[in-house]
């Protein structure tokens, strides 16, 4: 275990060292202390390493991650794991707005609540939130799975494409073109796998599935008000 203190060393040093780790590195375990809400911690990683961050992080922690496993022992600021490609990011606390924005792959687990715009424009990432999510989540979400064990805020899945949304609790309101859909066996299977991998204490049968009504896919004048 390598320990890196962000109070005595700079962000640039931290990210340089983490970027220097290649696929075959033997320094696979890193701990970052004194995060104190700093931005851009452990961004752009591309190696199968584990990074544990003690304390809360600022904007874009784990941004554009590939391969790495990043654990935040605290809460995460805006845009955690934005545009993630692969790997895993786990937030022990809450996540601010834009969690997992535009993510292409990998798994983002938020053990607390996520704020607004969780999974905005997601493009293949899987996001599991143990608590609740805020308004405008999964706005223009393209693909991937968003699992919410608690409640969802206003305008869930507005202008949704093909991402799948699973919510166990209540949904304050659905956004334009987002509807409840039938839960089929293949969806229960996806859910089961994601709940297990994210350590969520919930059963697939307790969830409802939401998806795109596909009414905005090709312009129709009768739907103009929804644009």
């Amino acid at each position: 275990m390598q320990t890196f203190d962000l109070e005595s060393h700079s962000l640039r040093e931290l990210n340089s060292i983490l970027h220097a780790q290649k696929d075959d590195t033997n320094q696979t375990s890193w701990e970052v202390i004194n995060a104190r809400g700093s931005h851009a911690i452990a961004v752009g990683l591309d190696a199968p390493i584990e990074v544990t961050i003690k304390g809360s992080t600022g904007y874009y922690c784990g941004g554009m991650n590939k391969q790495a496993t990043i654990n935040v022992h605290g809460s995460a600021g805006p845009g955690v794991a934005e545009n993630m490609m692969s790997g895993t990011v786990v937030i022990e606390g809450d996540a601010s707005q834009y969690a997992g924005a535009t993510g292409h792959g990998g798994l983002l687990v938020i053990k607390g609540n996520a704020s607004s715009r969780c999974g905005i424009s997601m493009k293949g990432i899987d996001i599991v939130v143990h608590g609740n999510i805020g308004h405008m989540s999964a706005f223009m979400a393209q693909s991937g799975n968003l699992v919410v064990c608690g409640d969802a805020g206003d305008a869930l899945g507005d202008s949704l494409y093909e991402a799948r949304l699973f919510v166990r609790g209540s949904v304050k309101s659905l956004g334009a073109d987002c509807i409840e859909k039938e839960m089929r066996p293949e969806h229960l299977e996806i859910l089961n796998d994601l709940l297990m991998r994210s350590g969520a204490d919930a059963k697939p049968e307790e969830f409802k599935r939401y998806g795109s009504a596909r009414q905005l896919y090709n312009f129709d004048v009768d739907n103009a008000a929804a644009y």
Binding site: G37, Y59, G77, N113, G134, H135
Partner: peptide
Amino acid sequence: SEYRALVNLPGISDARVWEPEP
């Protein structure tokens, strides 16, 4: 505006932290 602003407050690690609703 950011969590950074709060990190030196006494007892922040045990505080209830949240974001105000729109």
